[in-house]
Design a protein around this nucleic acid. Structure first.
Length: 602
RNA sequence: GCCCUCAUAGCUCAGUCGGUAGAGCACAUUCUUGGUAAGAAUGGGGUCAUGGGUUCAAAUCCCAUUGAGGGCUCCA
């Protein structure tokens, strides 16, 4: 959004949604008078309101609430603002414990009614419309008439912790959406439907990329042959790029003794999301949740000189993390993953260049995949977390954060800063993306680590003959195979460029008289390095084309009597374009060109 | 992990009031030998997620478990 555009918070739509939330709260309170109400802000595409309800609410209840909302809206009730004292507010909300807690926060200053930090002490105000009064700073529409009753819809019921803290009570959240006009609502609902068609979970099933099996376990995807091809291509790409950039490939085991993860410092921070240890002959072993400690061991295996640095150790390492059951999501959040991992050991002087080298690598990949919508997110520590969430060394935090900030600024790479989101061992730059259904994910990551090299006593001999500790950069530009394939499925809506397509060409004989010819073509294509198969089923040609099209095959080669007798093929491209009766060699040249260049076009 | 919802054939989904199951696609066979997104007929295929309970009787009602979905929390 550009600066010229109106901020969402100032828009009429924001007021409509905020007001719709109040109307919904009124309706809910009419049905459940004992309910305690909490907060109800507008959000992207709509609004929600959180209640502490005396009984569970079910989907069918939403209909009656929605119906009542329309009645309230029809009443044309004005929204009236009143600024009151804390004492008066406590009187108004004397039976509303959550509101009393909010009032206390407002009086103390420092937080707004949603618990967000504020610079100055806010005034306390209430908005009243019809029979409903809420602690609220607004803004609202003037009267409920400005909410279009045909442009609102209650969407879902969800649980949400009071003030977003899992130690607090779980409240009932009702999500709604509201728009200016019924058409806008219709478009929004249509957009949601379209997003579902792009959902990698649906595409992954339809295109036979991966499956989950109940007996194997949640979060443990099985890659089908067609998914395996994509993974092989991604690995090939990464290895090519990393070889050019001076990375060295290493391989490390899937398990290690407890000592290693104690040493690295991961165990105290992440024990909960590691698979529990297995104990043999009195020794505990953990399945590795990350590769870095093993790479540190490789670095430390022999003395290093400043002349050796930077040392870049790369591995497509297989890791396992016990993500909580509710956190799993398709391929985007899994328990077994293979990471495009590498660790770069640098001197302080080399840091900026190497760090930006990784950012440059991101950009190359993003160009290749045509990724335009992403945000570089610079994650920082916060002071309160030192010694708990973060390594307790403020000086190094500030120093490395400044190094990253300077590098990004010097490199003219736009980024946003995110407080209190760093890794425990240092600041990082994450690339943030959104799934088809709007869920947020971290794709690539580039992290500074000033803690582990010291813990592992990693050294290099400086020019001055003094032992120094290197900095370590953890990076994963292609993320994990799981997340990358999930992302690419949605990014391309399954229409992979030729080089990534599991099946690049399908030969379609028109009658079974051409089956032999078709199979001969497949042999030649495979010989030329093109992934091809033939459809010798008893289907008619039209059905074969439809099948190939549904699998989003980039090239279809139709061969009938004409083609067979002339030694030619008729090319149908996935986009529907055609080139009839061309020599096979002409197609092979075209396909090979696209594949070798990893071209976006077919 | 927490709140809510859901689970019927390989896939997508019907199944009313409780009376032991249906469709389309896919698959197999046969007919059809076709010109750029579904030719036709016939057939096989289900311990209704799993385990308990209520009932003369459970896909259907209740409980638990497992898995999935929408959120919350979390994500080295």
């Amino acid at each position: 959004m550009s600066d010229q555009e109106e901020r969402y918070e100032d828009s009429q739509l924001y007021k409509i949604r905020h007001s719709a939330a109040h109307v919904m709260a009124q309706a809910v309170l009419e049905f459940y008078p004992e309910a305690k109400y909490t907060i109800g802000p507008p959000v992207e595409n709509g609004f929600y309101y959180d209640f502490d309800l005396p009984q569970p609410i079910v989907l069918e209840d939403l209909e009656k609430i929605e119906k009542r909302m329309r009645q309230i809206i029809a009443g044309g009730h004005p929204f009236v603002k009143k600024v009151i004292s804390g004492e008066e507010a406590r009187q108004v909300f004397k039976d509303q414990p959550y509101k009393l807690e909010l009032i206390e926060g407002l009086e103390k200053g420092g937080t707004d009614e949603y618990g967000n930090p504020l610079d100055e002490k806010p005034e306390i105000s209430v908005y009243q419309s019809d029979a409903f009064t809420d602690l609220c700073r607004g803004p609202h529409v003037e009267t409920t008439r400005q909410i279009n009753p045909s442009a609102i819809k209650l969407m879902s019921i969800a649980g949400a912790y009071w003030r977003g803290d899992e130690h607090n009570k779980m409240l009932t959240r009702i999500y709604g959406t509201a728009w200016r006009t019924p058409d806008e609502l219709k478009n929004y609902l249509k957009m949601i439907e379209e997003a579902k068609a792009r959902d990698h979970r649906k595409l992954g099933k339809d295109l036979e990329i991966f499956i989950y099996d109940e007996e194997v376990g949640p979060g443990l995807p099985l890659w089908l042959p067609r998914g395996g091809v994509i993974i092989e291509e991604l690995e090939k790409l990464a290895k090519e790029m990393e070889e050019k950039a001076g990375y060295l490939r290493v391989r490390t085991p899937h398990l290690a003794k407890e000592d290693l993860f104690l040493h690295s410092g991961h165990l105290p921070y992440y024990a909960e999301s590691m698979y529990p240890p297995m104990e043999l002959e009195g020794t505990k072993y953990y399945v590795k949740p990350m590769n870095c400690p093993m790479h540190h061991k490789i670095y430390g295996a022999k003395p290093r000189s400043y002349r050796d640095l930077p040392i870049r150790l790369a591995e497509y390492g297989t890791c396992y993390r016990y993500e909580k059951s509710g956190e799993l999501f398709g391929l985007m959040r899994v328990r077994s993953m293979q990471m495009n991992d590498a660790h770069i050991y640098v001197t302080e002087d080399q840091f900026e260049q190497e760090f930006m080298g990784v950012i440059e690598l991101y950009k190359k990949y993003f160009d290749l995949f045509g990724i335009e919508k992403y945000v570089m997110r610079f994650s920082l520590h916060n002071k309160e977390g030192l010694g708990k969430k973060y390594i307790d060394n403020e000086r190094l935090w500030l120093k490395t954060e400044e190094m990253v900030r300077r590098a990004m600024t010097n490199g003219s790479v736009p980024f946003v800063e995110a407080a209190n989101e760093a890794a425990f061992y240092g600041p990082k730059i994450d690339v943030q993306i959104w799934s088809a259904i709007g869920k947020e994910f971290t794709l690539a990551t580039n992290q500074v680590d000033f803690a582990q090299p010291g813990r592992f006593d990693l050294k290099y001999m400086s020019r001055e003959g003094v032992e120094e500790t290197p900095l370590c950069i953890h990076r994963a530009p292609l993320s994990t195979h799981e997340r990358m394939v999930g992302f690419l499925l949605e990014h391309y809506a399954g229409n992979f460029p030729a080089w990534l397509s599991p099946e690049q060409a399908r030969v379609i004989p028109i009658t079974d008289n051409q089956n032999g010819y078709a199979e001969g073509i497949v042999r030649q294509l495979r010989e030329a390095g093109i992934r091809a198969s033939s459809d010798v089923s008893s289907n008619r040609m039209n059905a074969k084309i439809r099948d190939a099209q549904l699998m989003k095959t980039p090239y279809m080669l139709v061969v009938g009597e004409n083609e067979a007798s002339a030694g030619q093929v008729s090319l149908r491209v996935r986009d529907g374009s055609r080139q009839d009766n061309i020599p096979l060699a002409e197609f092979v040249a075209r396909a090979k060109d696209r594949i070798e260049r990893r071209a976006p076009e077919l």
